[in-house]
């Protein structure tokens, strides 16, 4: 079994790590729809079987924005593994998304 690994460790290699993701959206705007699609696709490709996605519509639950200090939408919050990471935007740049989720080291090659 591999050690827990540093912040820059390549967690994609750890098959036991479960990714708990929360995506904050505001209604069903095109940006929201794109963000959901992009997130699902990337997770299937890189984290098949070990991720959980929770969608939060702030229009329905505005009070939830305070907990994770959400300002922009869409915002993806990686609750687990620690530490918490936030990725803002419609997640259309897959490379940046992978870096943000620390599935690939920052500045890593294609």
């Amino acid at each position: 079994m591999e050690p827990a690994g540093g912040a820059h460790g390549n967690r994609a290699d750890d098959p036991l790590e479960v990714y708990e993701l929360r995506l904050y959206l505001a209604g069903h705007s095109p940006k929201s729809v794109r963000a959901v699609e992009n997130l699902r696709r990337t997770c299937e490709e890189h984290l098949a079987g070990r991720y959980r996605i929770e969608l939060v519509d702030l229009l329905e639950n505005p009070q939830l924005a305070r907990g994770d200090e959400i300002i922009a939408v869409p915002t993806l919050v990686r609750k687990l593994p620690q530490p918490v990471r936030k990725i803002i935007g419609d997640l259309s740049d897959t490379e940046k998304l992978l870096v943000g989720l620390q599935l690939r080291p920052a500045g890593g090659g294609p």
Binding site: L58, I71, A72, T75, V84, R85, I87, G89, S92, V99
Partner: peptide
């Protein structure tokens, strides 16, 4: 704390403020 990728807006802020 965060990375930005792609389009976004500040509706989160609007929602918090208006609430």
């Amino acid at each position: 704390d965060f990375v930005t990728t792609g389009e976004f807006d500040l509706d989160g802020l609007f929602i918090r403020l208006s609430a």
